[in-house]
């Protein structure tokens, strides 16, 4: 398995960051960056990361199930993550999540049939003082109202 030249360069640097014989340390970052490019943590990706980090595939497989940002199945092109943890909850986070669910017609960790959007009710993402917050892929959006969310989603749809 090979990745884009940019990612290959990143991985080459990444493996240099850890001391001799500690390539296993790159497992988690490598998985998440590769997932961004591959779309999901596939069995082939597990084997590839295992090979590069010089560990048995089982040790990579264990990690995949542990971290909530790693997915074995592809999420949408735009992964909409709505926080409903207490700070957001108090200012309409739950309603925002329900609104997003209705708007997209999908539930937690589901993907729209065109593969464009997926939705996840997530735990605190560190935007408590600017709640309610949404993260789409890796972009943060603060003080989000249902209307603003509609605009965001519609904008992304159009961009597509």
């Amino acid at each position: 398995m090979t990745f884009s030249p940019k990612l290959e360069e990143k991985f080459a640097k990444m493996l240099q960051a850890y001391p001799e014989g500690r390539k296993r340390s790159a497992v988690v970052p490598m998985l998440i960056y590769a997932q961004d490019e591959v779309g999901a943590v596939t069995p082939e990706l597990i084997d590839e990361v295992a090979r590069r980090c010089e560990v048995p595939p089982l040790q990579v497989d264990e990690v995949v199930g542990y971290y909530s940002m790693l997915h074995r199945k592809p999420m949408g092109k735009y992964h909409v993550q709505v926080c409903t943890n207490i700070s957001c909850l108090l200012v309409g986070g739950m309603e925002l999540y329900e609104h997003a669910s209705k708007k997209l017609g999908i539930g937690h960790k589901q993907v729209t049939s065109d593969g464009q959007f997926s939705l996840e009710e997530v735990e605190c993402m560190g935007a408590c003082s600017w709640a309610p917050a949404v993260e789409i892929n890796y972009d943060f959006y603060h003080h989000i109202t249902p209307e603003k969310l509609d605009q965001l989603i519609d904008g992304l749809r159009k961009a597509h």
Binding site: A26, V28, Y66, S68, M69
Partner: peptide
């Protein structure tokens, strides 16, 4: 100095779980 990305796990904020995660393991 290097950055190291987590991948979604509150428990990795616990310092020893963080170290396991930094070593490429479950936190």
């Amino acid at each position: 100095l290097y950055t190291h990305s987590g991948a979604g796990a509150y428990e990795c904020g616990e310092e020893t779980a963080l170290l396991d995660s930094l070593e490429g393991k479950r936190g």
